[in-house]
Amino acid sequence: MAHIPDGILSAPVLIGGGALCIGGLALALKGLDERDIPKTAILSAGFFVVSLVAVPIGPTSVHLLLGGLAGLILGLGAFPAIFVGLLLQALFFGMGGLTSLGVNTVNMALPGVLLALAARPLMAQAPTSRCVALAGMVGALSVLGTAALLCLSLWLSSPAYAPTLAIIAATYLPLAAAEGVITALIAGYLGKVKPEALFAGTLPEPAE
């Protein structure tokens, strides 16, 4: 759902999104030690597989975007992880597009990375219950951020899209709710089973 296919956005938006995406990737890759690459890659494969599982909501089902959780676990590394996931999805399934890859990466990665970086200091010494609640908020808000960025890229592309944006944004509300609940529960699970997974020192720290 968050994959804008080729043929929808205007050239300036595609180029601007591509430039932002390259900037984000360059920043993240600079902070990534070459020997951390297998870890980041295997985790992004994990996120990719999780995003393929359908989560039922009422009569339909949704696929999680996982931007918030990726931000919480990988930090800035979520940027390349989501880029690789989208690239594989375009190559394997034809989901998304080639020219819109940059815009889609920014839309999905930027909110999660920013929110996770903001939540990190708050979660550092917080008790478990507050950590779980914060993780849920990061998950839900990053979906809303993705929806906002997606609407922004459509609106910047053509004013003709403007009246449809409210409806498109509304379709993200159930996903935001599901993503919030599941992200909180995953954070709780990781807290019990492998506490070092959430912003672990074993994982790439954001570039200082």
Binding site: V49, V53, L64, L185, G188, K194, A197
Partner: peptide, 26 residues
């Protein structure tokens, strides 16, 4: 899978376990 608290918890543990396994494999 249904829309229920049980499903949400089960799927979250499923996803969490998958990520833990991925991390350990890494």
């Amino acid at each position: 899978p249904r829309t229920s608290r049980h499903t949400a918890r089960t799927l979250a543990h499923f996803f969490g376990q998958l990520l833990v396994k991925a991390l350990e494999r890494a």
